[in-house]
Design a protein around this nucleic acid. Structure first.
Length: 742
DNA sequence: GTGCCTCGAGTTCC
DNA sequence: CTCGAGGCAC
């Protein structure tokens, strides 16, 4: 087949298959048989495999029946799908109310209404409607990017395909779930057919929605409750309750246990009412969700990093189960942290068979921390062979709650935590006041090296398709095509080409899969600065820290130059830390108060730090959210010769993209703003969040870099300093006028 | 100096 | 998801 013929054929197949999809899910008379459909799909896949470069953006293989290795197409949510913060006790609900009032600057008696609704135990789904037509359905995924399950969603009866009088653009969100009755019937059918049984309705719903073949999904009894929304071209109402009523009007199922509550007391009353009905609802719920009713207040409250401030999930108490602790294994993380994991006799907890559980750290096993404080209520330790009580924290992570001492053998030895890394034999030390013990082997330790590489290719870093945890382990062990440092990933293709025994000839690999991997790697030679910084896996530098560093320095060169320049100051601070610790010990021994500030100042003065180094250091730790610990860690990583060489080696293979400049239309974008004095129309936290959303950087103190000072009544030294430095100063009303309408 | 709040680093099972 | 700890406001 010629390339031109292939291109034409792919176009024909895309049209045919797309029409077949629509006909199949819409009308009841399919235009083509299942066998014909499958044949067309296979032909399409075969041609795409031969001419990957011709694959169409609307390729049918991306719609539903994508290649198994590839799964579904990805969809970036226009509005992120976040998870909710949790409340477990009545006191947490009072805290929720209190923190909202404090954020909004409301008094304890000001009226503030909430909604309360059951939290359905299913999986969330976002449905996009354009001009009243369902055009796209996406799973939550990591919250930012989900999977395209449009064709599957079209098979769910509770989901309208068309909606009259809907806003032009409307994303409706809710929960896909399976009722108890439907779940039991499905499992009976599965058993009769000799197929695998589902552990619980949630897994059955998730498995059914994520079928690559929409016809299987169609045969599964899925249901849907709508309770939220994403992008909207017109608001759905002024309150949560109004919006829910509107959703019902559109033809969605909404949960009839949704109530409006005027106080935390009423929320708790409704929580108990729902809890009492839990067993008779006919579907699984795992708690009750509370939301601020007024949508304008929801908008003011906004979001934290991963959760909205205006909603919380009040979870039901976790299910408990007893089992035997068969052993304790020690895992080594990328920072060298030794993490104990409990190996358990398999036991069912909350519908899932659990055989591992986290033990967190050394203290969690002994039951006491380094200061002799009890960690759990009981203060009992865990020993191998014990009968232990397991629960799933947040219904997910298995943890041990308790131990039955009556069933413990008299001679059961206390568990001794290793002080030698089980992976590399290096000493494992625990810093003063630290909860974790760490392997000191660094990259000598294979476990640390592998975990660091896994972090490098992980989703929030380089995110290289086809190079996941398992492949990293494989390539790490490989002598011919070794990946032992990040740069090795980018030389893999050239090394493979120069090799007699090619990757494509290996077991489990083919020409196509090898080429896919190389293509995925090539794609990531262009990488945003923030992802590069995060990917390096420097201790204390996480996703947010990396982003802040990227936004501050705007380039790898500028970052390294600044950090290198600041090195003497970083070292001086390290000395000061040591001097401070010595002073503390001395003061303790002599029974006097420690003179910390003086000691630090003397230690730093003794180091004779150049002014330029001092300035670079102050600039670094002056970044909001970045302090001395992170600065120290970053400085150490870039000053370590081996580590620096490895990084420079890596950079040589990359084109690093600077962060996108903040929205230019905002008058405060890119400006550094300081708030001082008392603010009357908004709280400090709200002002900060608002300013940051508009692209401003909010700082705590006035300096030469400050662009704008917003001063309320009672502003003192900061206002004077701003005047001295000639920094523009405005009051709260002027600030609000400035950002109005944004 | 103390008490929030957020972030980082760890973990399970499907 | 949870815990510990870093960073910052009070």
């Amino acid at each position: 087949m010629t390339k031109a013929a292939a291109r034409a054929e792919l176009a024909r197949l895309a049209a045919l298959l797309n029409r077949a999809n629509t006909a199949y899910h819409g009308a009841d008379a399919p235009e083509i048989s299942d066998a014909q459909y499958d044949a067309l799909k296979r032909r399409n896949a075969a041609i795409e495999q031969r001419f990957p470069e011709l694959k169409r953006p609307d390729s049918p293989s991306d719609q539903v029946g994508a290649r198994a290795s590839d799964g579904f197409g990805k969809i970036t949510h226009s509005v992120a799908m976040l998870s909710l913060g949790n409340a477990f006790e009545d006191g947490d609900v009072a805290d929720f109310d209190r923190s909202i009032r404090s954020y909004l600057g409301l008094g304890a008696e000001a009226p503030l209404a909430y909604t309360a609704e059951p939290k359905i135990d299913g999986l969330s789904l976002s449905l996009r409607y354009e001009n009243g037509q369902l055009v796209q359905a996406a799973t939550r995924g990591d919250g930012a990017v989900g999977e395209n399950v449009t064709e599957n969603a079209r098979t769910i009866a509770d989901i309208p395909q068309t909606i009259d009088a809907a806003p032009e653009i409307m994303e409706i969100r809710g929960e896909v779930y399976m009722s108890h009755a439907d779940f039991a019937a499905l499992n009976a059918r599965q058993q009769a057919a000799g197929d695998k049984l589902f552990a619980n309705p949630r897994n059955a719903a998730a498995g059914s929605l994520r079928q690559l073949d929409a016809r299987i999904t169609k045969a599964r009894p899925l249901r849907f409750f709508a309770y939220a929304w994403g992008e909207l071209s017109a608001p759905l109402g002024e309150t949560q309750m109004q919006a829910i009523a509107r959703l019902a009007g559109f033809g969605f199922k909404t949960n009839d246990l949704t109530r409006l509550c005027g106080s935390p007391g009423e929320l708790l009353a409704h929580y108990r009412a729902i809890e009492a009905q839990r067993a008779t609802l006919g579907y699984d719920i795992d708690g009750v969700v509370y939301k601020v009713d007024r949508l304008d207040l929801q908008a003011r409250l906004g979001f934290r990093a991963t959760t909205p401030r205006w909603a919380v999930a009040h979870k039901f108490p976790a299910e408990l189960a007893w089992t035997r602790l068969e052993g304790i294994d020690i895992q080594v993380g990328r920072t060298g942290a030794l993490s104990p994991v409990a190996r358990l006799a398999p036991v069912t907890v909350g519908g899932v068979v659990v055989s591992n559980a986290t033990l967190h750290n050394e203290d969690y096993i002994t039951g006491f921390d380094s200061k002799g404080q009890r960690i759990r209520d009981t203060g009992k330790d865990f020993r191998i062979g014990d009968w232990v009580q397991v629960y799933r924290a947040g219904d997910v992570i298995p943890k041990l709650a308790d131990v039955d001492l009556a069933k413990r053998a008299d001679d059961a030895p206390e568990y001794v935590f290793p002080t030698i890394c089980p992976q590399c034999g290096s000493e494992a030390v625990r810093e003063e006041g630290d909860a974790v013990r760490r392997c000191t082997g660094g990259l000598i330790c294979p476990a640390q090296a592998v975990e660091k590489l896994k972090h490098f290719v992980s989703r929030k870093a380089f995110d290289i398709d086809g190079l996941g945890a398992r492949q990293i382990e494989m390539f790490y062990e490989d002598d011919v095509l070794a990946i032992r440092a990040p740069a090795d990933i980018f030389t893999l293709e050239a090394r493979d080409a120069a090799n007699v025994s090619r990757l494509k000839n290996r077991h489990g690999w083919g020409a196509q899969s090898a080429e896919n991997l190389f293509a995925a790697i090539r794609e990531k030679r262009e990488i945003p600065l923030a992802k590069l910084i995060f990917g390096l896996g420097i201790r204390h530098v996480g996703e947010v820290g990396a982003r802040d560093l990227a936004l501050h320095y705007m380039g790898w060169q500028a970052l390294t130059e600044a950090v290198d320049l600041a090195r003497p100051a970083a070292l001086a601070h390290r000395r000061a830390d040591l001097a401070e610790e010595a002073e503390r010990q001395a003061a303790l021994a002599e029974g006097r108060r420690a003179r910390i500030a003086e000691t630090r100042a003397a230690a730093i003065a003794a180091c004779d730090v150049p002014a330029a180094a001092r300035a670079a250091w102050d600039d670094l730790i002056g970044i909001d959210g970045i302090g001395a610990t992170l600065g120290q860690s970053l400085s150490d990583a870039l000053s370590n010769p081996e580590e620096r060489a490895a990084i420079e080696d890596l950079i040589g293979h990359l084109r690093v993209l600077p962060p996108a400049a903040p929205a230019a239309e905002s008058p405060v974008a890119g400006k550094t703003v300081v708030f001082t004095g008392s603010l009357e129309k908004m709280t400090r936290a709200e002002a900060k969040a608002r300013a940051e959303a508009l692209g401003a950087k909010v700082s705590g103190s006035v300096s030469g870099k400050t662009d704008l000072l917003v001063a309320g009544p009672g502003a003192g030294s900061k206002a004077r300093k701003a005047a001295d430095l000639g920094v523009e100063t405005i009051d709260e009303d002027a600030w609000l006028a400035l950002i109005e309408g944004l």
